[in-house]
Amino acid sequence: MSFYYIGREASKLWKRICAEITTEIKLLGENWKYILGGLICQYIHGLAARGVHYFHRPGPVLQDVGFYLLPELGQDRAYISEFVFTFVFLSFVLWTFHPFITKSKKIYTVLIWCRVLACLVACQILRIITFYSTQLPGPNYHCREGSKKATLPRPDNILEVFLIVPRGMLFGCGDLIFSSHMIFSLVFVRTYHKYGTRRFLKQCAWLTIVIQSLLIIAARKHYTVDIVVAWYTVNLVVFFIDKSLPELPDRSGAAALLLPLSKDNKTKEGINHKLLNGNTGDTADWRPRTQINGKILEEGTIVHVEAIINGL
């Protein structure tokens, strides 16, 4: 009996994944230019960060209040901040693909990444302008005086300039104000705060970002000013971009469920839920799963809905 149940649920999951792939491919066909443009800008940002490393000149570490208040992690434990950032990054990426496997569908993966990339590109343009305006002596261990990695040697050919290697991304110098790690983390957390549904996870996400900020300073990867500027710049940029972009479409059709449905409408609604969610279209599955009146429903929160219909 258990094998029959597992097989039935696996079949539903496979249908749900196939239906979601079909939907997302269609959206990708309509929005591929935005996705491609955002990815190209990530590459340009990487080139700019590598380019400023050629101009970096090591010098005495600047006075910093964060360095006095926070104990230094040291080179052996500097990886802790990278571990926290990797956890935040991977968690967000996995969350954006949750519509492929869950019945509760709040977002479209392609559309959410279009929004995220728009915020990242705007912040990274400001970052490039800032760290090319003034190069500060890097506080990281490999950027200090006496380190061979503090300044890149002149490239042997033009291809070397356009080549980005992971090791170079980890051991860059000069691209300080403001922190790229904080750009990604803050954009991801703000996006989940708006479109996520679990209040506890939202609180944990913000706490994680605060801890990451302190760890970056303690690891001497950035000055305190790099973190402070990232906090208010990224939040302001995301706020204004969010206001200028159209809101994401409501996937649940929850507003329609508040209205009396005819027999034909119920049939159509059931077919739509079956295609999107992979279920049988039972009325038990017809429950609000996302936005009502422009707000995301959070688990553990009771939302009172007033349906006002013109003429009724």
Rank of each mutant, 00 (worst) to 15 (best):
I107H: 04
K149G: 02
L111T: 01
K148C: 08
I107L: 11
L152E: 04
A122V: 15
N140G: 14
Y108V: 00
T109W: 00
T109Y: 01
S133W: 11
A122F: 13
C143H: 06
E145G: 08
Q124H: 07
G146F: 10
I107C: 12
I107T: 09
A150K: 01
K149H: 13
K148W: 07
H98G: 06
T130E: 14
I129M: 14
F100N: 01
H142V: 11
T151K: 06
V116C: 12
Y141L: 08
Y132L: 12
I129A: 12
S133A: 15
G138R: 01
F100L: 14
Q135G: 12
Y108T: 00
T134G: 03
I128N: 03
S147D: 07
I158K: 11
K106W: 09
I125S: 03
F131N: 03
I158T: 14
R144Q: 09
T102H: 10
K105Q: 15
R127W: 06
I101L: 07
V110W: 00
R115A: 02
C143E: 06
L136W: 10
I129V: 15
A150D: 03
A150P: 05
G138V: 03
C114W: 00
P155N: 09
G146V: 12
I125R: 04
P99H: 06
T151C: 05
P153L: 07
F100M: 05
P153C: 06
S133D: 13
V110I: 13
R144E: 04
K106F: 07
P137E: 05
I101A: 08
I101N: 01
Q124T: 04
C119A: 06
R154T: 14
P137R: 05
Y141T: 11
I129R: 07
V121E: 03
K148N: 10
K105C: 15
C143D: 07
S133G: 15
T109E: 03
V116A: 12
F100K: 01
L152Y: 14
